[in-house]
């Protein structure tokens, strides 16, 4: 799994950090998403999928990395 984030779309809700703090964080000043792990380990895939699904701004995209 490969994760990409679109900073321009991100609204800073932090829902992704609540679900998967191992993969996502937020910048201190404006709350925009910080991607900690672009290729998360398999045991995190389900929560990352959920984080992408509940993102209020649809700023998280997932693709299958080979």
């Amino acid at each position: 799994m490969k994760v990409t984030v679109d900073e321009a779309r991100c609204c800073g809700a932090g829902q992704c950090v609540l679900l998967a703090p191992e993969v996502f964080d937020q910048r201190e000043d404006d709350g925009i998403v910080v991607l900690l792990e672009a290729e998360p380990a398999e045991h995190l895939h389900a929560t990352v999928r959920e984080a992408a699904a509940v993102c209020p701004a649809s700023a998280i995209e997932l693709s299958d990395a080979g």
Partner: peptide, 13 residues
Amino acid sequence: LGWNMPKQARLWR
């Protein structure tokens, strides 16, 4: 409620 403080608001949530 966070006003231009999204990360901090989320931490208080």
